[in-house]
Design a protein around this nucleic acid. Structure first.
Lengths: 236, 236
DNA sequence: CGTGGTTTTGAGCCCCTTCAACCACCGTGG
DNA sequence: CCACGGTGGTTGAAGGGGCTCAAAACCACG
């Protein structure tokens, strides 16, 4: 089991956001046989809302395992258009790259706790073959999810996209029963940039789902999934 | 950062003489003894135009290395809408999946030669660590390309998409000099399903690039790249 | 030459965007 | 206690980029 390591010099890295000062608590303990169980130096880190964990084209030195909160991975065009390629939930790993530069940026959607691992030590000659298999497996799962997202962006309508998004979140956060409640960590603008839409369209599609009777909005961020089967049918 | 693994024995394998499509016989003996050390059964196969190499949801038993021709990887929605997630060129490997089912289908765009490897034998306990690294590297490269494609599908205009597509093909087939000629293996409909457009829009964008003076169409499938820098500027 | 598949071009329309106004919520401070 | 500003969300009106439907042109191959 991983022993929580006190915040070290890494915590003074340039990306540590100012408001991380109030969150000096230790990372929660983990109860798994996951990769970090046999890995070298791990460093808990905290990030505040919208804090940058790493930037596109920045040198990639660390791999991150998300403990709590939500992280968005995004790319920007020169004129500011943004595409979010993934939202990461607790348990996900991110930040490993081919080559030595990050190919997209990672930002905290809300408050985020991660554990950072030195990347090159993970794949050193002494590293376990099991870990490479684990990493391959996670990468292949990520590739599969990204290919699904290609189909969504290339071929689905706005309503289908939002329905698929809500179902994806519900499934990933373990809420797949009827009438479950879904708490959205991210604002409409992030949802829009994930679904390849504008935030206004996202808002209108929420309204349409509401009128359809498939969801109920307790607040903008709190969604009741009333008719999961109908949602699935609408996700195409 | 994953250092690029030098091309392994797998990549050096000579392509076998053509056999009948979907041949069940074993490959002839290799000239070197290394390949069979960790690549037991390799089978050369040929496919004709639009032939299915494997289908979505089919049991995944083989990994394929493309020798010649172009392969498209695609997913279908129930109503027939199609998204092509990748075109594979000679040298590419495809067909490895997490889980035991193919998550997308693979079809030959034109005439195709591949070598098929039994999947399970590649990742067995006795399999070379180098091969797992190579596979991880290829998967991560594929993930990076797919994330780039998300940005294209989610945020780029039709003209930007076609410009980016032509540049991608030119780069991948090694034609990055000025006034190079690009032979498109795929019809407009495939380009459209790759770029998330209709074939009519693709045709119109070709016309627009022609009028821009960035390309010249010797025929519908043969593109002269006249102004590569302008193309790059247009790809956003 | 026909013939079928592919590509181009045209005309009208629609889904989503753009632009804009308004509202809801919330922590802060007078 | 309420005014205040700021962030985030909703709603409306109008426009446009790409789609749909349609037809013609092109092209390889019998």
């Amino acid at each position: 089991m991983l022993t929580p390591i006190p915040v070290t010099e890494l915590s003074r890295m340039k990306h540590q956001p100012p408001l991380a000062a109030r969150s000096e608590q230790l990372a929660p303990r983990m109860q798994t046989s996951e990769p970090e169980a046999f890995l070298p130096a791990s460093v808990p880190m905290n990030f505040g809302r919208n804090a940058e964990i790493y930037a596109e084209d920045e040198t990639a030195g660390y791999v991150y395992k998300l403990i709590s909160g939500v992280v968005r991975i995004s790319k920007l065009l020169p004129d500011g258009r943004r595409q979010i390629s993934a939202f990461h939930l607790p348990g996900d790993m991110f930040g490993f790259e081919v080559g030595d530069l990050h190919h997209a940026s990672a930002e905290a959607v809300g408050s985020v706790k991660v554990v950072a691992f030195k990347w090159h030590s993970l794949l050193s000659a002494t590293a376990s073959n099991d870990f490479v298999h684990e990493l391959l497996n996670r990468t292949m799962i990520g590739l599969r999810q990204t290919q699904d997202h290609l189909l969504l962006l290339g071929r689905k309508t706005a309503l289908e996209r939002l329905a698929a998004f809500l179902l994806e979140l519900a499934e990933r956060s373990g809420q797949d029963s009827q009438d479950s409640v879904l708490d959205l960590a991210m604002p409409r603008h992030d949802i829009a940039d994930y679904l390849g839409l504008t935030l206004e369209t996202v808002s209108r599609m929420f309204a349409e789902l509401k009128e359809n009777g498939t969801i109920r909005l307790e607040s903008a961020r709190r969604v009741h999934m009333i008719n999961m089967d109908k949602l699935k049918a609408m996700a195409a």
